[in-house]
Write a protein that binds this DNA or RNA. Structure first.
Lengths: 362, 362
DNA sequence: CACCCCGATGTGCACGTTCACATCAGCGGC
DNA sequence: GCCGCTGATGTGAACGTGCACATCGGGGTG
């Protein structure tokens, strides 16, 4: 039966025609079945005799056969690829989520194709999208949390389901998000509970959905606690910006706490305060957002809001693949991040912020 | 001629047969040419009349035609995809390089497919590689800097050129790397020049090529300066490990400086020293490696070795595509990283390290 | 015992593109 | 005026796979 396969137990690789990679037909010939049977083995079709199946598998092994994805994609018009549209993908949060997405996708037999957004101009977005569409992606995960991206996405219907990693409030897609608003509110409430009444928010760029949500959470808490509102500062997420903002802020000193929209800015901020001779948390408390790995090791250890980027990525894939396969999509529950209290926040020092206490003592 | 195309200037989309996406043949029919002519326009073949070309392009536009990558890949057996095999891809360095690779690849009309290594077991490596091979990648960039990965890579010949982002010293592939040895040597020499003679190296896992190279650079410098060698500590790159290592180290205190193999560990280290009441840089100097964005904002600002991860990624793609296209590959020049001196390193404080001074004074 | 159904397998075609080759008109040279 | 070359285009096949349908034998059912 398997005369082709071995001689003296020695595995002889039968001549694959030309230099070409072995195809389903080569396997079929060797296993003495039709190519269709081989195909059935590949897609484990139920009705196939175990004996036959084994013979085919052996032939595959012998020929080192590998299915040709292009051919398969051509005939099924399914690419088994999902796209990821990402901005700032080298930062800890997005990078972690992307890695998790890749892992989860691979587990489900899917491939991941990433397109980064260097800038967020409509052209760049369209270009990246075009790139992904040419890949014939079956679904899209968007980690590019600018409102503008979703405008473009809505305008140029891409024809595949997509999931965003931040709640956009739009109905044309599902979002799997961490509840940024609650996270930010909790962070602010934490400061309030420590007796702070003059709190500044160092926000992210307002076209970022997350930045906007965190700002909203902050405003909610400020409103609830009936605090006077300090105008938020709009930053760019970077530690460098945090540093410069901190330099400016330490001039006025009409506040006792700062809630930064991410850890990087918080770290830059603390750097500037240190330079200005302001003690954190003695004089000023600082709270960040994200809980990046170094957050607990900087000085002082940063109080922040922890979010699980891996979990978000993982769930996003599950959600997306459910849609891709037309399965019932259950309600999406938001992940609520948790506050991690560390050394950078402390009780407000009885007296009012400096500039007023100076006035008072005069 | 183009009666099909419009009525009253209104773009009428002619019926695409069934719900299928328009194919090259649909375009051909509309433009009243053969499908081959359309193909020629797509691959801009020289001998085609401008007039004809325009007609075809118009038809494409009208039908919103998009070439089918699977079909093209099937017949040309070229996927226009490069693979990236990465470990710890969510960390700043790798993540930045990956983003740069993606950008550069897209610029060259290539797609990028990533496979992360959760663990570095041979099975995981084989699995990831298998995943990429099924994608029919044309080339591979390896950012998984464990020696073991290259063992597996060598054993399971993948049949496509690959480039690694660290110099492995092997001849089966090109490496585009930053000269880690020189970087580490410079970092150590910096400490020596400040008068430190008792320097500990907090190394990375020794199966990591970079960790090994940095260790080598350290050892070179120690040897050159004729210092006594403290046994290096083998870490895992994480800030957490740096912290624990720092705790252990601060018990003995038989050193005046530490060179950490990356910034994260250096930051954890400084945290532990602070906890132990050891002043950095007053009593102990610390130097890191990588220059991650927060390095300059921690306290004290971290002296470190800066490397340009984007540049490495970019050049890797250029190198790889040159090989893929069988072009002449020019000599690969190593990028030499540069030392950035900040606040965490300072002149050794005249007296010997504590433990000896205690002994001396007794 | 005739019938039908089902499990196991085979046959041919379609997917959308490129490649090799064929065709055909025009043009210059002898 | 014929030959051959070249530019512009068309024709058919092939790439490797899955799908729809056909085939064939066996076993249960009436």
């Amino acid at each position: 039966m398997n005369v082709h396969i071995g001689v003296n137990g020695l595995a002889v690789t039968p001549e694959t025609p030309k230099g070409r990679a072995p195809s389903i037909r080569d396997v079929a010939r060797l296993a003495e079945v039709s190519h269709q049977t081989v195909s059935r083995v590949l897609n484990d079709h139920p009705s196939i005799r175990p004996e036959t199946k084994e013979r085919v598998l052996l032939a595959m092994e012998t020929l080192q056969y590998r299915p040709n994805r292009a051919a398969r994609a051509l005939v099924t018009s399914r690419s088994h690829t999902i796209g990821v549209l990402a901005a700032r993908s080298s930062e800890y949060g997005p990078a972690t989520s992307i890695a998790a997405i890749e892992d989860a996708a691979r587990e489900h037999g899917y491939y991941v194709n990433t397109a980064n957004l260097a800038t967020v101009t409509p052209e760049a977005i369209t270009d990246a999208l075009e790139h992904l569409m040419l890949q014939a992606i079956e679904g899209l995960v968007v980690i590019a949390p600018q409102v503008r991206v979703f405008d473009v996405l809505a305008a140029a219907p891409i024809g595949v389901p997509f999931v965003s990693l931040q709640s956009t409030g739009r109905s044309d897609h599902l979002a799997l998000s961490v509840d940024q608003v609650t996270g930010a509110r909790r962070a602010t409430q934490h400061l309030v509970s420590l007796g702070h009444r003059e709190i500044v928010h160092l926000a992210g760029p307002q076209d970022w959905i997350e930045a906007e949500a965190r700002m909203r959470g902050f405003l909610d808490a400020v409103y609830d606690a009936d605090l006077t509102l300090h105008p938020p500062i709009l930053g760019d997420w970077s530690a460098d910006f945090g540093y410069f903002a901190g330099r400016e802020l330490s001039r006025t000193r009409d506040f006792t706490a700062v809630f930064a929209a991410n850890d990087q800015m918080a770290i830059g901020l603390m750097h500037a305060f240190r330079d200005a001779g302001l003690d954190v948390p003695g004089e000023i408390s600082v709270v960040g957002f994200d809980d990046i790995p170094v957050a607990q090791h900087v000085w002082p250890p940063l109080t922040t809001v922890h979010q699980d980027f891996r979990e978000v990525g993982r769930r996003a894939v599950a959600l997306l693949l459910n849609q891709v396969h037309g399965r019932e999509v259950l309600e999406v529950e938001e992940i609520v991040p948790r506050l991690v209290v560390r050394g950078s926040s402390a009780q407000a020092s009885g007296h009012r912020p400096r500039y007023t206490s100076v006035t008072d003592s005069a």
